[in-house]
């Protein structure tokens, strides 16, 4: 499944970058994040209760940030499994200053979903993925603003 889109955050690029790299901010912004722990190799172990409305599942996974070019772009690699099956995703996140104090975050990636969600959630999957990604960026935007950019 291809996931792509963009989201505009009302904050300077550096501030957005910082939040994206900060485990505590990430943990607060990730929808349904119950735990986010940094590992020795720079990756994170995450526990998420994620979904849309009543459709949710518990997932444990690994989040890796690769090839970071501060403050422009990085690759995000996610793998997790849980009650709804498994998910492996990789994508590119790009930050562009589109105006003073305005940052556009563009994301494009490919997610491979397996197990329950893949076989019974086909109809709703894309819309759900979009909504979850949207929630994340909204929360991230709030995060940046509440921390005073």
């Amino acid at each position: 499944m291809k996931i792509e889109g963009s989201y505009t955050v009302q904050a300077p690029r550096d501030a957005v970058w910082q939040r994206l790299m900060d485990p505590a901010s990430l943990a607060r912004a990730l929808p349904g994040c119950e735990k986010l722990e940094p590992n020795a190799d720079g990756s994170y172990t995450a526990q998420l209760n994620v979904g849309v409305a009543a459709i949710r599942g518990n997932y444990t996974g690994r989040i890796e940030i690769l090839d970071a070019v501060r403050p422009e772009q990085y690759r995000l690699k996610i793998s997790g499994k849980g009650t709804g099956g498994f998910l492996n995703g990789e994508g590119l996140i790009m930050l562009a200053e589109t105006g003073p104090g305005t940052t556009e975050v563009r994301y494009s990636g490919d997610a491979q979903v397996g197990g329950l969600i893949a076989s019974v959630g086909q109809r709703l999957m894309q819309a759900a993925a979009r909504q979850i990604v949207g929630e994340f960026f909204q929360a991230l935007g709030r995060e940046v603003q509440s921390q005073g950019g």
């Binding site: 491979q112 979903v113 397996g114 197990g115 893949a118 076989s119 019974v120 086909q122 109809r123």
Partner: peptide, 12 residues
């Protein structure tokens, strides 16, 4: 293409 069955319910 990953071998996931997409028509896993009678809704699909």
């Amino acid at each position: 293409e990953n071998g996931q069955l997409l028509t896993g319910t009678l809704m699909d």
